[in-house]
């Protein structure tokens, strides 16, 4: 299967501290890749490399190569705004904008120049349907998104992202602030979405990684300990540390 991202010898430093060490991995197109590991292991930092969200943090230095469709995302001719349009992100806590449901979803298309009202209506409906939210919000499109439940807000954030038609969706513990039912809905949604998108998900929850992902990478203290097909990693890990972690001996 084709590679979407190729990461080669990535090192990341935060001021004097090295947060990621010699990470190399291939992220496959239209698959779900899960990143697991204990808090502070670097999995979220790694995720934020992929759409250069770390650029917003002062004191971060990166070396190594990250190729998106064979193009280096740190290359001099890369437009980071365009990169983030291609590689979107869903955050740990739902972060809808304080505006209506409709305006939240239309935000992306609008900033990218879509002005046509009919076209926007179409995009909003399509995105909300893809995020399995349409039926719940179609009668309150023009009311504030802040009135939705946490789970609905997170699906709204996914819809908002889908509206800009990204190629890759990065998710940073998208269900950690949600109840089990909302979590289930998001997981179902992920399985549908992978038909069209490449998904990379950071999760604290190993069952979640096992349930939804095709490949899993285990991070520990800034190293990527093991990376492989999810089933193999969870049933026959090759590294002792991976086994200790997935069997719950630490973490």
């Amino acid at each position: 299967m084709e590679n979407k991202f190729v990461v080669h010898d990535l090192n990341l430093y935060y001021k004097d501290v090295q947060a990621l060490r010699n990470i190399s991995m291939d992220i496959k197109k239209q698959q779900i890749t899960a990143l697991i590991g204990p808090s502070g292991c670097g999995k979220t930092t790694f995720l934020r490399v992929l759409n250069r969200m770390n650029d917003l943090i002062e004191g971060v230095r990166i070396d190594g190569k990250v190729l998106l469709d064979d193009q280096d995302i740190f290359g001099p001719d890369v437009d980071v705004v365009y990169l983030r349009k291609r590689v979107g992100m869903v955050f740990q806590r739902p972060n809808p904008f304080p505006m209506s449901v409709y305006d939240n979803v239309a935000y992306g298309p609008r900033i990218h120049g879509q002005r046509n009202k009919n076209k926007l209506d179409e995009i909003v409906e399509k995105s909300l349907r893809s995020a399995a939210l349409w039926d719940e919000v179609s009668n309150r499109l023009f009311k504030s998104a802040l009135g939705l439940s946490g789970g609905q807000q997170q699906r709204l954030c996914i819809a908002r992202l889908l509206a800009v038609e990204p190629e890759v969706v990065l998710m940073d513990e998208p269900t950690s602030a949600l109840d089990p039912l909302s979590t289930l809905k998001i997981e179902e949604l992920l399985r549908d979405l992978k038909n069209h998108y490449t998904i990379v998900i950071v999760t604290h929850n190993m069952q979640q990684a096992a349930r939804v992902s095709d490949s899993t990478a285990f991070f520990l203290n800034g190293d990527m300990v093991e990376f492989g097909p999810t089933e193999t990693l969870f049933t026959r890990p090759t590294d002792q540390r991976t086994e200790d972690y997935i069997t719950g001996r630490f973490g």
Binding site: M53, R84, M89, R93, N95, F97, Y107, L161
Partner: peptide
């Protein structure tokens, strides 16, 4: 909240669009 700003950047918004919108 910083997360709102990050949310906007993650959709490919520029700094000015994020401030203004």
């Amino acid at each position: 909240p910083k997360t709102l700003e990050a949310g906007s950047y993650a959709l490919g918004a520029t700094r000015w669009q994020t401030i203004y919108r």
